[in-house]
Design a protein around this nucleic acid. Structure first.
Lengths: 230, 230
DNA sequence: CTGATGAAACTGGTCAAGCCAATTTCGAAA
DNA sequence: TTTCGAAATTGGCTTGACCAGTTTCATCAG
């Protein structure tokens, strides 16, 4: 008969709404731990399975973070941004990971790189040179440099990997790195390292290229650590 | 000191991956009704609440549509590529990427692995043995094996990387691999390769470990290609 | 024979209670 | 005071049951 009845939305959606509201109201503050599942379920007047379904919805949309054996926490994602925050991953680890991955990739890139590939890298390098000479910071070119080299290995997954690690959206690392890189002399150092990498690539010397890439990213890490204010 | 992130993913995520893959593989077609919750849960070997949690995740991302009293339907808007691979990245590339990355990581893991680390890997390996002996397919254990080894390198970024590559949610690779791995003798081969890796790790022989890991992933790729129908 | 009907058989929605595993807490021992 | 481990706490998952919409289909009125 009467079909026009939005009826009630599913329970887990209603519960998710309530919790979301409690968070936005400030009832639950950022990073704060929510009551235990059993207790929260009782407070909201629903069963634990229903509460769990709601929590999964909230977890997916990034509103809360669930830690096994510990508790449910309000995601402090869009807020904080102290220094090297993050749970388990530090900027240092990021740079070391890049060093390992990219120095491995460049070995294969060395073997497979074409003349066009070399030309692309050379052009990027030249653009960087002029940028640095004129006091600009070639951040985007830096990205292209690493990405283009990764492409030469001929593996799309690896290329994506290098790009993702360069960006690392999750934490504000990219920005921190950029800001510290502002001094021209530091960019000048980075540029010479890039040139060393290119030279090895042009000579198709895998070992040299590997070392150069590793050294470059290692130095980048160090430069950044040293310049860290405190 | 350094906190080690969870190796296992929550069950609902694993279940959601399986269902998502079954849809993309064409196992479940567009608009088609999936088996009833009770039945599907049994088929996937999980409880109904866990299945429901996975369905909520899939519902949120728009993969399925749930109609009360009627059934679970594959969202018709989720068309697109049904058969094999996506744009630029092929399953082959994925496995080759894993081979490069993981064989690089294991070198460092070799140097840094602790006695507890070795014990963890050994236990995982033993569980795999019994699983294989009793005809089960130790998919999750396989994941833990690779992830636990990656953890030993002591770099959270790399660990996450290995996990992400193993999962590769975007494409139905994971499940395709799983399905093809169904024959006990193939799992038996994989097991022996795992044991070779562990032996090298236990002996702290970086080169041997690197070769063993690379060989394992290379063989996995080959097994999968050979068993591919078309 | 045709079509309306309504009960029974599904199917999803929710709840209750319990056990397991990871984490945290906190007091006893060194 | 520091360390360590047992107990309490917390999330993870299962089993089993009942409720509430949908669908199915045999039955019966026309």
């Amino acid at each position: 008969m009467n079909s026009i009845r939005p009826v009630e939305r599913r329970l887990y959606q209603q519960v998710a709404d309530q919790i979301r509201a409690l968070i936005q109201t400030g009832h639950f503050r950022l990073g704060q731990r929510l009551p235990a599942e059993r207790e929260l379920a009782q407070q909201l007047g629903v069963s634990r399975p229903s509460l769990r379904e709601a929590l999964i919805a909230l977890e997916i949309e990034g509103a809360v973070e669930i830690r096994m054996g510990s508790g449910i926490y309000v995601s402090s994602s869009t807020e904080r941004r102290s220094v090297s925050s993050s749970i388990g991953e530090s900027p240092v680890e990021l740079m070391e990971a890049r060093a390992m991955v990219e120095s491995t990739i460049i070995v294969q890139a060395c073997a497979r790189i074409t003349l066009e590939g070399l030309k692309s890298v050379r052009q990027i390098l030249e653009s960087m040179r002029t940028d640095v000479a004129e006091g600009r910071k070639p951040v985007e070119l830096d990205r292209q440099f690493h990405l283009t080299i990764a492409q030469q290995a001929g593996n799309g997954v690896l290329t994506r990997l290098v790009g993702d690690l360069f960006d690392e959206r999750h934490s504000p690392l990219a920005t921190q790195l950029r800001e510290h890189f502002e001094t021209p002399d530091i960019w000048s150092l980075a540029l010479s390292e890039h040139e060393a990498i290119f030279a090895a690539l042009e000579a198709r010397d895998p070992l040299l290229a590997q070392v150069a890439m590793h050294r470059h990213l290692e130095q980048s890490k160090r430069r950044w650590l040293d310049s860290e204010p405190r």
